[in-house]
Design a protein around this nucleic acid. Structure first.
Lengths: 138, 138
DNA sequence: CCAAAAATCACCCGAAAGTATGAATGAAGT
DNA sequence: ACTTCATTCATACTTTCGGGTGATTTTTGG
């Protein structure tokens, strides 16, 4: 980390050095301008790091919080509930299909409807949501 | 680190390019310093945000002491444990990659190693196994 | 400093998951 | 009889997941 900061500082110095030598600032008479620009760069760099970290923390603390719907009003059928319990045990769609003696496509239909009713996007979220709202899936 | 320096170099080139292209606008000469400082500020602010967010988790994970009982015995690293916790929250690989500021492929590598060490086949089983052995993944 | 471990990323490939749409069947209820 | 709904299945399609391999970079520990 220290090495990274050093490289950062060296890079900053190189920028000023190159700018100076290439004479993009040839008409700048006063030397304090460069120092001023360097300070601006450092300050905004620090601001960026601070801002980036703060934003990162927001993302981290943004846990998956589902709304609290009524378990009975979700309209999950018996068959869908069976499938959900097997999904919650870590079985694949094909394994569930074999256990329930139906086709793979049927299980996919059930899981799709489950995801709709549970308002989730995939099976892992479905498990979490089901447990969260108090369903006994295992 | 080499890539970081390269990015700095590219950024520097872009600065010069932009400055060069706008220098021929005569009106710029009167406010050149202000614009130049503004560009430096914006670019370094962006660099800081990018840098801060990328290094955020590394810094934290170096200071955090993990007290979980079973995760060390299985040879699960800190980063893998981080990924596991996010997997346990139902995030997809891409979502995890975005939050940890790494690529999708990196997350896939982590999850693959996790599945090996947990002796499971997929992410759903990984969550169940992790909870079963007493890991605090959420 | 050097070796080992950890972390990162890429590419390919096949399997699995998920979406969208449509449809046939049968049970249940009014 | 008619409607509704659950269950079943299909086809086609896109996305995601996971395995395998190899590589570089970074960190860590002696």
């Amino acid at each position: 980390m220290l090495k990274t900061i050093l490289i950062y500082g060296i890079t900053l110095g190189l920028i000023l050095l190159i700018l100076n030598s290439i004479e993009y600032l040839f008409w700048v008479r006063f030397h304090f301008i460069e120092i001023y620009i360097g300070l601006v760069a450092i300050i905004f760099l620090g601001l960026g790091i601070w801002f980036g970290r703060k934003k990162q923390l927001k993302i981290e603390s943004n846990n998956v919080t589902f709304a609290q719907p009524n378990y009975g009003q979700l309209g999950i059928s018996k068959r869908e509930y069976e499938v959900l319990k097997l999904v919650g045990k870590g079985f694949s769609n094909q394994e569930i299909a074999d256990q329930l003696f139906v086709s793979n496509n049927t299980i996919k239909t059930h899981t799709s409807r489950l995801f709709e009713k549970l308002e989730v996007k995939n099976r892992t979220q479905a498990i979490l949501k089901a447990k969260q709202i108090g369903m006994e899936i295992e």
